[in-house]
Simulated scan of single mutants.
Amino acid sequence: MSAPTGPFQVASVDYRAAFDALRAVRDTVFVQEQQVPVELEIDATDPRCRHVLARDGGGRPIGTARLDPEGRIGRMAVLRDWRARGVGSALLHALLRVAREDGLDRVSLHAQAGAIEFYRRHGFSPLGGRFMEAGIEHQAMQLQFDRPLAVEDREAAIATTTAIILAARRRLWIHSRELDPGLYDQPGVIEALRRFGTAGVGGEARILLHDATAAQRAHAPLIGLAQRLSSVFAFREVEDPVDRACPSAFIANDAGGYYFRALGHRFDGETQRDARARARQLCDSFDLAWERARPCSELRALGL
């Protein structure tokens, strides 16, 4: 069977009105595919939860998730043929909006072991050790709103950067010394940037470097991607002494997400997914430096 194509939509739904659609997805994924006993999959909490449902272009249900009154996300399920197509991310973002609208200051979940990295990319942090639930290994995770989360190592930096890119609507700002080997050359980050560049929404990514020559010598894969998508990605190199003396680096998007590193040659820093004032502050300072910087025409002509 070929992979499905075309658009999908995610919306909040009334539990009783959408009961059959919700059950169709959850029965397929949890009961049939993962062999979760039906008596464990169905619980008394369902009617009290906020539910979101993804449908394909023909209106068929393809994914679902829920948020309980205590702020716990659960029953995240996407039909097999629609996985790795952004449906899970869209469901999660919809629930995070619901959580904020309900005034919650944090959300939590029990992630299946194979989905831990997915949730890390979306800003969730592990809590405690792993455990078994319904015969499947899980990890408790949490996301707290309106407070910066620490990014402490390269693995977290890659996950955070990927999440910021995937959450962008039309704009990305990247301030990097030399495209950070170990970060902007990682397959997951490059794939997220490729998806951003080919989304067809008129996107623009501005990349401000301190040393374009070093990135060129390293054959940074982002340069090759930018060549193929030159209408989306643009490079400039700082020249002003004040800008060159700035030690920090960051990535920010137009949805209020950012990942800031006070020392740009290190991975440790802080991130928030919905901090519009802080993200706007970073982008405003970026735009001033961008106007003073020189276009990197040599990167556009580089053959990799």
Results as ranks from 00 to 15, higher is better:
2 S>Q: 13
10 V>P: 12
10 V>K: 11
11 A>C: 12
16 R>H: 14
16 R>L: 12
16 R>T: 13
19 F>L: 12
23 R>C: 06
25 V>R: 03
25 V>G: 04
29 V>C: 08
29 V>T: 08
31 V>W: 04
32 Q>E: 14
33 E>P: 09
33 E>T: 09
34 Q>W: 03
35 Q>H: 14
36 V>R: 12
38 V>Y: 10
39 E>L: 10
40 L>A: 10
43 D>F: 01
45 T>S: 12
47 P>H: 10
49 C>W: 04
56 D>Q: 06
58 G>Y: 07
60 R>L: 02
60 R>W: 01
62 I>T: 05
69 P>F: 06
69 P>W: 07
71 G>Q: 04
73 I>C: 11
77 A>W: 02
78 V>I: 02
83 R>L: 08
86 G>C: 05
91 L>F: 04
97 R>G: 08
97 R>Y: 04
100 R>W: 08
105 D>M: 00
107 V>C: 12
113 A>Q: 14
115 A>W: 03
115 A>Y: 03
118 F>W: 03
119 Y>K: 08
121 R>V: 00
126 P>K: 09
132 M>N: 10
137 E>L: 09
143 L>E: 03
146 D>R: 06
148 P>R: 08
148 P>T: 07
150 A>M: 07
150 A>C: 02
155 E>S: 13
158 I>V: 15
159 A>H: 14
163 A>Q: 02
165 I>G: 02
166 L>T: 10
169 R>C: 00
170 R>Q: 13
171 R>K: 14
175 H>V: 04
175 H>S: 12
186 Q>K: 13
190 I>P: 12
192 A>S: 11
194 R>S: 04
207 I>L: 10
210 H>K: 13
211 D>P: 00
220 A>I: 02
227 Q>H: 14
227 Q>M: 05
227 Q>V: 05
228 R>K: 14
231 S>F: 00
234 A>C: 01
237 E>R: 06
239 E>G: 09
241 P>H: 03
243 D>S: 15
245 A>Y: 07
245 A>P: 11
247 P>M: 05
247 P>L: 05
253 N>H: 05
255 A>L: 02
256 G>I: 07
261 R>D: 00
261 R>F: 00
261 R>V: 00
269 G>T: 07
269 G>R: 03
270 E>C: 03
275 A>E: 13
275 A>M: 06
278 R>W: 02
285 S>T: 08
288 L>Q: 15
292 R>A: 12
296 C>D: 11
297 S>F: 12
300 R>N: 08
301 A>D: 15
301 A>K: 14
